[in-house]
């Protein structure tokens, strides 16, 4: 039985890798201008110069890696958060962690001006994200809230952060800050360059490795605190550590590309349907599926209009009905 599941995992992993490779080829080939496969290969081999090479090598290629890393990380963050708070509807975007990060970044820009570096911005975003994570943990575990109540608490925190952010921008009369806030609220991979990749890589890849190496702990914590404790895990500490790492990864993505919602809820749900909740399988597959999903959506976003449609808008359009479907399904099944 276990070996059958492992074989299915290996096959799905291979298929998702192939899909990711296909999305790489498509995202490099198509956009406002198209490349033939022959031109693609010759430009990647270092031949040619000029703006077409610039588009391919210094825009589309880093954008693919940034999209894959962000999509994969957000999907894994969603899966981890759902386990850590034992709620299949938890997600950094829905629970206000991303809004907290945006509020932190807005405060940072308002205090230090537009010239604050990526690290300063991300640090502030992390502080905001972490504050929201702690608040959610305190409220939900202090009150033993059920899954739906927790989502409502998360939405309230989300609304609070959004309102505080809007208040800051409103009071500042700063058009540039307003533009920045609008950018964060809608999310886009347009700013992606090679410059952000080391930063994204060194925060998200260790985070992903950490969670994959703690898959068993995530499985245990889903059994309940008493059961996890009896099996040698300190659930409170592990939950706090997990939410901290999720906040850090989410903040790094938000400070680079704004709020991109629903990836963390769509991807783990679809995969759980096929593979159950064993995180040994769920996390690597979530990463691959999340990466392919976001890269594909980004291709749509930048091909559909000369000014590009914000990525977060498209994930929102796809994700919202999906979320409603999950809620209705849970309500009907009484879970």
């Amino acid at each position: 039985m276990a070996s059958g599941k492992a074989a299915r995992f290996a096959l799905t992993g291979a298929i998702l890798l192939a899909v990711l490779f296909l999305s790489l080829v498509l995202s490099l080939r198509f956009g406002v201008t198209d490349f033939t496969v022959r031109e693609l290969l010759s430009l990647l081999a270092g031949e040619g110069s000029g703006m077409r090479r610039e588009i391919l090598v210094n825009l589309r290629l880093p954008r693919f890696f940034a999209g894959a890393l962000t999509g994969g990380s957000l999907a894994v963050c969603g899966a981890v958060m759902q386990a850590a708070v034992r709620n299949p509807m938890a997600d950094p975007y829905l629970m206000g962690v991303s809004s907290g990060a945006t509020l932190g970044a807005t405060l940072c820009i308002l205090t230090f001006g537009g010239r604050v570096g990526l690290l300063g911005l991300s640090g502030s975003a992390f502080a905001g994200a972490m504050a929201c994570s702690l608040l959610i943990s305190l409220i939900s575990f202090g009150t033993r809230a059920n899954a739906l109540l927790m989502i409502l608490i998360g939405l309230a925190i989300n609304a609070l952060c959004s309102s505080l952010g809007s208040l800051l921008v409103y009071l500042s009369f700063d058009a540039n800050l307003l533009r920045n806030l609008v950018f964060w609220l809608m999310g886009s991979l347009a700013p992606a360059t090679w410059d952000q990749l080391p930063f994204l890589f060194w925060i998200n890849v260790p985070g992903l490795v950490f969670f994959c190496s703690r898959s068993r702990n995530l499985n245990l914590i889903m059994l309940g605190d008493d059961e996890a404790g009896s099996l040698g895990l300190s659930p409170g500490n592990f939950r706090l550590l997990s939410l901290g790492v999720v906040a850090l990864m989410t903040a790094s993505c938000v400070s680079c590309f704004g709020m991109i919602g629903f990836v963390g809820i769509i991807i783990p749900h679809v995969l759980r349907f096929f593979f159950g909740s064993n995180h040994i399988y769920l996390l690597p597959l979530s990463f691959l599926a999340g990466a392919s999903f976001l890269v594909s959506v980004d291709l749509l976003a930048r091909s559909a209009h000369p000014s590009e449609i914000p990525l977060g808008v498209i994930t929102g359009i796809i994700g919202s009905p999906f979320f409603v479907w999950i809620l209705l399904r849970r309500w009907r099944t009484g879970r």
């Binding site: 406002v32 201008t33 610039e54 588009i55």
Partner: peptide, 11 residues
Amino acid sequence: DRYPSRELALS
């Protein structure tokens, strides 16, 4: 009709 994307401008 709005700002062009970087990719469009480069092309």
